[in-house]
Design a protein around this nucleic acid. Structure first.
Lengths: 230, 230
DNA sequence: CGTATTTTTGAACCCTGTCAACTATCGTGG
DNA sequence: CCACGATAGTTGACAGGGTTCAAAAATACG
């Protein structure tokens, strides 16, 4: 019995482009594994040993400076592809923010398989191009947006991504998959500034925070308005 | 006579993976064109009509906000690939910073050609992955570095990239391909702040500025030291 | 040589970071 | 079930780096 057949991210992950036969081949070089919260799957600067798909949970891409400051480069959720195929070293670390399940492949085996399966490479290319576009959008956020705009944009993004997961439209009530510290690292702010913006949005009646990680968007339009200058 | 045979970026561009025969096919759907300084090749939000290689000159990727602020997402030099294959709209504009020559393909023709040429797609994939890594590095710069660090890092990057162009080692004397305004847009600063950091580096004897666009690195080590916090 | 554009310099202000203390929440064990 | 400590988040005061606004200087261009 092929593990892929009942895979939770079957449709979203790069594997969807493969025929049953090819999928079976890929399955044979793959391995389901769990990652505990805080544990790293790849280390910045180390040899890039594996690649894979996120099945469940949240991971972050994180890079740290010479002087110790570190920055989160992205958040990876179920269906996302992680790792750096066709490269020797990993430019950043991949660390689990929650307990997670991933489907991993040794990089060399995956590279070889991909080279022989153009549809897979094509899928990976499209995905990478999209990721590049998304990363460039974040660049603009970091370069030109102030604190309130960054936080508002982050909440909207998370609202969209969490709604995609459970299939409903735009979910106005969801749990953040990350801590304030992670948010700060991602948004290029400090934890205190993030906290102040959240408080401000709450005081303005735009959101409610019924729990530590819970967010309820009370006024989506107003939140969107916070996204751009005045 | 195949125009590719005497192409100045033959070795660096994605085309290098192709056989003579395939190269000839690609050449037939390609078109050499010039872009005047300030002119756009692609517009943010518009249909992505073309892709191509930069042959000569400098272009920028640029995105603008709802509220008018705009940000430069990257600088493209000779050999770089521009455009968004396999997507309908362009997430950003591509604008010439200097007069430039590019080798363009209609996106649909290129897409079709690429799908039938796995080695080309593979080359494009590797290039896109590398570009993604580079973009993520800039993200860290924007998220965690202060003004002097950003300017120092930019000068070092330009030193490296301009040396690559003329073949010499690390060129300590070069002309910036961009204006102060472009630098500011790229680094997420204002033009005034950029100017102040340049002045500061000059006053500290780390660089000299014999002309508006000219940079001479007098003390490379010291410049590198400015790259990270104290 | 004069005008337009780009760059530099100056001063005041404001946003965000920093440091510190306080509060809420979670998990653990008595 | 509650007490306790540990962790996460909030709030406040203050300082500093960068932006903003304004004007001068330098350079390019006709």
């Amino acid at each position: 019995m092929n593990a892929c057949a009942q895979c939770s991210v079957r449709e979203q992950a790069i594997c969807h482009s493969l025929s049953a036969e090819k999928l079976d081949q890929l399955n044979r070089i793959g391995r389901r594994q769990t990652v505990k919260k805080g544990q790293a799957l790849l280390w910045q600067g180390d040899e890039a040993l594996l690649v894979g798909n996120v099945l469940e949970g949240t991971l972050k891409l994180s890079a740290s400076n010479a002087d110790g400051r570190d920055h989160t480069l992205g958040i990876m959720l179920a269906g996302d592809f992680i790792g750096r195929p066709f490269g020797d070293t990993s430019a950043h670390s991949v660390i689990a923010l929650t307990d997670a399940r991933v489907c991993t492949f040794s990089r060399s085996a995956f590279d070889a398989f991909a080279r022989e399966n153009p549809p897979l490479e094509h899928g990976l290319l499209e995905r990478t191009l999209t990721e590049l576009d998304r990363t460039r959008q974040w660049m603009m956020l970091l370069g030109r947006k102030n604190a309130i705009e960054r936080v508002a944009l982050f909440l909207i993004e998370m609202s969209k991504r969490s709604s995609k997961a459970d299939g409903s439209g735009a979910s106005l009530k969801f749990d953040l998959p990350v801590s304030r510290q992670d948010m700060a690292n991602l948004l290029g702010l400090t934890i205190e500034t993030v906290s102040r913006q959240i408080t401000r949005l709450r005081d303005d009646g735009i959101i409610a925070t019924p729990g530590r990680r819970a967010i309820v968007i009370l006024d989506y339009g107003a939140l969107e308005a916070c996204t751009a200058e005045s």
